[in-house]
Every structure is written in structure tokens, then in C-alpha cells.
């Protein structure tokens, strides 16, 4: 039961996977249908059997009562998006990912108009050492999708996380810690999967004009349902 309506599920599905497959949206950021759920961004937090948990990692079970669209949870999600905006340097007007960015799209969909908190303005130099790609750490939201993609799909282990707490940051697998000195290639899945403007191809700038981009067309809540894997025969 999700927000009062029944949702079917298959064994092995998590609550979020079951909801998306059944055309029911729960906001999420670090979850991607092709990768092992991770549960770090916490945007998909919902009340499951009375406990607040990340639905992307909570196994679906018969009889579970899930409440997602509550004012309290909308507040929590809005605050989480605000925290991410305050933590990094997200200067949307100059970002090539604008309009295709999931953090931005979540903010729009949740009605976030300000980070609210004090901006941390961290000093994070960019890495432009690779011939075909560059990393802007200012925009990294630490979702680990590139880590997972490089480990699980590309088999290259290019990315990892270092530090802890607020000093946690993305590193790459080279003694110099420069992307250009790793085995990374622009065709890697890790390149495609970044939900924000942290890992970007070089020599592509505003090829699709602002206003005609993915989340300019439809809000992320609608896009995510289009993207969700569904069992054969069931259409959205």
C-alpha cells in the first residue's frame, strides 16, 4: 500500500522499484534503475510500516504500508535538496547540465526557492586533465553513481570516495589524482550516469539550448516514471 493505494511487487524489488514500476513516483536522486541501490541521498525517504527509511533500499513485502506524499516528508525532502545546494557550489546559470540536472529538477519539483542554509562555498578546483571529459567537483552531490558505474559496468574502478563527513569527496584512481591519468574514457558508463554537472564531456556546450532540455519539457516526477523498468506487458 502506497499512500492508500495498493502497489504490486516482485520478489527482490525494493519499495521504490515497485512503486516506479507501478507508475507511482517517489522522489529520488542517488538511485538509478541500472545500479545497485545505495541509499545515501535519502530523498526517497518514506514512512514504511511507521518507520522512516530510504525506500530505494527497503525490500518490498506483502502488507507493507508506505506513506510518501505527506507534508512532513515533503519538508524533509525539500530540506535535503536545500542542504545539497548549500553544500556545493551550484551555479546553475553557467552550468552545461542545467535543464538536464536531476538536483535542479528535484528542486523545481519540490518547490525549493532557496538553499535557506548558509552557503558553505567550498573551494573545489576542477579537473580538466582528461582529453575528452572534465570534472567539476563543485557540483558533485556524492551520489556515488560514477563509482558504482565504473566498478560494476566499466570494470575500471576509476572513482572512489575519500575523507569523511563534510570533507568527503570524490577521487580518481591515479597517483596524481587526475582524471587524465586514469583509464577513464568518454564512452564509460560512469560518464553518462552523473545526475548533475560534475562529470561532463568536453567540447559540448549548450548544443541543446536552455529551455529545450529534458526537465524543461516535463518535471522529473514524470520523467522518472517514463524511465522506470517495467515487467513485460505492463505499460505505464
Amino acid at each position: 500500500m502506497l499512500d492508500g493505494a495498493p502497489v504490486p511487487f516482485e520478489p527482490g524489488q525494493t519499495v521504490l522499484q515497485a512503486a516506479l514500476a507501478a507508475d507511482r513516483y517517489i522522489p529520488h536522486l542517488c538511485y538509478h534503475p541500472e545500479f545497485r541501490p545505495h541509499g545515501s541521498c535519502k530523498l526517497c525517504t518514506a514512512s514504511v510500516g511507521g518507520r522512516l527509511v530510504a525506500t530505494c533500499t527497503t525490500p518490498a513485502e506483502a502488507g507493507l504500508v508506505v506513506d510518501s506524499e505527506t507534508p512532513q516528508l515533503r519538508d524533509v525532502r525539500r530540506t535535503l535538496v536545500q542542504m545539497l545546494f548549500a553544500e556545493g557550489n551550484h551555479f546553475c546559470p553557467s552550468c552545461e547540465k542545467s535543464g538536464n540536472c536531476q538536483l535542479q529538477a528535484q528542486g523545481s519539483d519540490l518547490g525549493v526557492t532557496t538553499a535557506g542554509f548558509r552557503h558553505l562555498y567550498p573551494d573545489r578546483p576542477i579537473d580538466a586533465s582528461h582529453p575528452d571529459a572534465w570534472i567539476d567537483f563543485n557540483r558533485c552531490v556524492l551520489c556515488e553513481l560514477c563509482v558504482r558505474a565504473s566498478d560494476e559496468v566499466d570494470g575500471k574502478h576509476v572513482f572512489a570516495l575519500a575523507g569523511r563527513g563534510l570533507t568527503k569527496h570524490l577521487i580518481v584512481n591515479a597517483p596524481s589524482n587526475r582524471l587524465g591519468d586514469t583509464t577513464f574514457a568518454a564512452s564509460d558508463e560512469a560518464m553518462q550516469v552523473c545526475p548533475v554537472g560534475a562529470i561532463l564531456p568536453k567540447r559540448v556546450g549548450f548544443a541543446v539550448p536552455i529551455g529545450s532540455r529534458r526537465y524543461d519539457q516535463r518535471p522529473v516526477s514524470a520523467q522518472a516514471l517514463d524511465d522506470a523498468p517495467r515487467p513485460a506487458g505492463r505499460s505505464p
Binding site: S40, K42, L80, M83, E87, L142, G165, L166, T167
Partner: peptide, 20 residues
């Protein structure tokens, strides 16, 4: 804030916000 592992958003950012 010092001991937060930094995995999840609420604790990584929230404990530091709390401290500030």
C-alpha cells in the same frame, strides 16, 4: 559533525549545519 561518516545527506550536511 567530526565523526559523521558522510554517507547520507542529512547527517553529512546536517551535523555541520547544526554545529554552525
Amino acid at each position: 559533525a567530526h565523526e559523521s561518516c558522510g554517507f547520507c545527506t542529512p547527517c553529512r550536511v546536517g551535523t555541520s549545519m547544526l554545529a554552525s
